[in-house]
Design a protein around this nucleic acid. Sequence first.
DNA 1: ATCCTACAATGGACAGAGTCCAAGTCAAGA
DNA 2: TCTTGACTTGGACTCTGTCCATTGTAGGAT
Lengths: 140, 140
Amino acid sequence: MSDLLERLRGRGWRMTSQRRVVAEVLDGDHVHLTADEVHARAVERLPEISRATVYNALGELVSLGEVIEVSTDGRAKRYDPNAHHPHQHLVCSSCGTVRDVHPAGDPLADLPATERFGFTVAAVEVTYRGLCPSCARASA
Amino acid sequence: MSDLLERLRGRGWRMTSQRRVVAEVLDGDHVHLTADEVHARAVERLPEISRATVYNALGELVSLGEVIEVSTDGRAKRYDPNAHHPHQHLVCSSCGTVRDVHPAGDPLADLPATERFGFTVAAVEVTYRGLCPSCARASA
DNA sequence: ATCCTACAATGGACAGAGTCCAAGTCAAGA
DNA sequence: TCTTGACTTGGACTCTGTCCATTGTAGGAT
């Protein structure tokens, strides 16, 4: 799915070596990295890339709708490159691993107008929490 | 609903003036305060209470299951004293206000076993996002 | 191919939220 | 009242993330 770079360029995103590396890191293993993890992987390819640049690039990708920001806990935000396929998240309460999941049903439809208090409801996020297999084994 | 203090004492929670004040702040207006907001209100009643003590007390109340920790965004966690009535949250994307809501349906049941990847799923959080009436008016 | 310039990268200082710890204080049982 | 283990304090520290002045460069214009 490496037309990400094409899409970005087509949208007038000025392509620099730093931005390319950040986009490639996200486009790689389909995991949910924190900003510092993205930075660490970017540094492997472009040793002098700065933290600020990674934060900037991530913020832009989020604004462009190419990446979703996920705050699963009070700790670091994670970046989910799977923005074009609606999905929810399953988070390990112990190690913080995140997996994409596809529940049945439409939670938006489950919120009746009487429970909306005049809000303009735009989106819904569902986060399932539990223990991943390896943490469950470790705590047994 | 001020049997909160009774419940805590009955569970062997050593009652100090600081803990009492924190519990009373949460037991007051039924809003979703950040730790620093709790601290600010606690200081009004007990001027020398420290931030660390408020954090400790909040953490203990969460462990005891009396209060729920809500991380709605990457900012400060909020503390929800309505732990004994299952509910979900409706968050204003602009000002961060949180309201409790009660959607129909059971999202836990919507996650088929094939989408659980061996996790022991224990809980589900649903966060509706949108604009509250006053922010919607301001941005119009 | 070279020049220009607006946009991007840098890195260090700064800020917000939260944790840690050694020393002092106190609730509550004996 | 005494004792003691649990609690509180406040300041230093960590972790995430943001800001900004300076330096560098992508990519259109010539």
